[in-house]
Design a protein around this nucleic acid. Structure first.
Length: 299
DNA sequence: TCGCAGGTGGTCG
DNA sequence: CGACCACCTGCG
């Protein structure tokens, strides 16, 4: 069991720098389906928008020869489009830097060879603490949809109806969205999700953001899967275990479930992973998706 | 042309 | 309740 490293903040060359960061891999964090507003750069860093700031996030390992996600290193954040990097407190929270992922992984892998193998694929995954309204909008759009198109829809929604934000655009507020019609949103090409979004925006504009899983589930277009994603990524409810088609596949393949037995899977996750359910889901999700990339014949 | 993509709401029995 | 099924859109 290794020692926990203290994360420290400093500035260097115009960038915000966090040193002593472990268990961090940009591609695994930004490309594991939890967020839709980050894109990779040639050098492996990611650029995107969060907290009203356009930024580039880069990880430099202290030991460049180490496997991704296994070495401590530093996280560099640069503001883009003329803005500065923003608030260190925001980024520390957003990137979940105070969380001890070494401990989480140790607890999940103890006595579970499936998790051990899964975590071997995505040991640098972190769960971002994202804006609640953004996660609500994003995951309503995500249903029965694919990632490139989800990103396109969110981008068009921001550009067409959002507030200008340091060279880019933030998502429209609930009030703005509530004032629009399905026809207004036609250029965004949300399909039948446009109605869900407007109904949910009206509800949020009137009653405020949901404060519990129950309130979340009452929103239009928010079923069990989407509610669990929003709870996990937008409300910090880390025992959430969203069950989507990929999780159904991995639970069938690795834990012997019937692909349609979602109740059984949820009960198993509660029992086996407990408060770490959300982390377990992310490792399993990333694992099965990576495997299917390497073996297209397995779908 | 058709199935499918990180599901949900509506409608049956 | 649980099992179906239509549903916007875009791509192979």
């Amino acid at each position: 069991m290794r020692e926990k490293t203290e994360v420290k903040t400093e500035y260097a060359d115009g960038a915000l720098v966090f040193t002593g960061v472990r268990d961090f891999d940009c591609a695994e964090i930004f490309d594991c389906g939890q967020c839709f507003r980050w894109e990779p750069e040639q050098d492996g860093s990611y650029s995107g928008i969060a907290g009203g700031v356009c930024a580039n996030v880069r990880f430099e390992a202290d030991d460049p020869g180490a496997m991704p996600g296994t070495s401590s290193g530093r996280v560099l954040i640069r503001g883009l489009c003329g803005s500065d990097a923003g608030d260190p407190e925001f980024w520390s929270r957003y990137l979940d830097l105070d969380r001890d992922y070494g401990m989480i992984k140790a607890r999940l892998t103890a006595d579970d060879p499936v998790m051990a193998e899964a975590i071997g694929f995505g040991s640098g995954i972190r769960i971002l603490n994202q804006d609640l309204w953004e996660t609500i909008v994003s995951f309503i759009i995500s249903q029965n949809n694919n990632i490139p198109r989800i990103k396109g829809c969110i981008g068009r929604l921001a550009e067409g109806f959002g507030e200008r934000c340091a060279g880019s655009f933030d998502l429209p507020t609930a009030e703005t969205l509530a004032s629009l019609s399905v026809d207004d949103l036609a250029p965004v090409r949300l399909g039948y999700r446009a109605r869900y979004l407007i109904e949910t925006a009206k509800c949020v504009a009137e009653n405020g953001l949901p404060g519990s899983f129950g309130e979340l589930s009452a929103l239009c277009g928010v079923g069990p899967k989407v509610a669990n994603c929003i709870a996990l990524f937008g409300m910090g409810i880390r025992d959430s275990f969203p069950i989507d088609v990929w999780v159904r596949r991995v639970m069938a393949e690795c834990y012997g479930f019937d692909e349609n037995d979602m109740k059984g899977m949820a009960a198993f996750a509660r029992e086996r992973f407990g408060e770490l359910g959300g982390y377990a889901q992310q490792y399993l999700f990333y694992y099965i998706r990576e495997k299917s990339k390497n073996h297209p014949e397995n779908r």
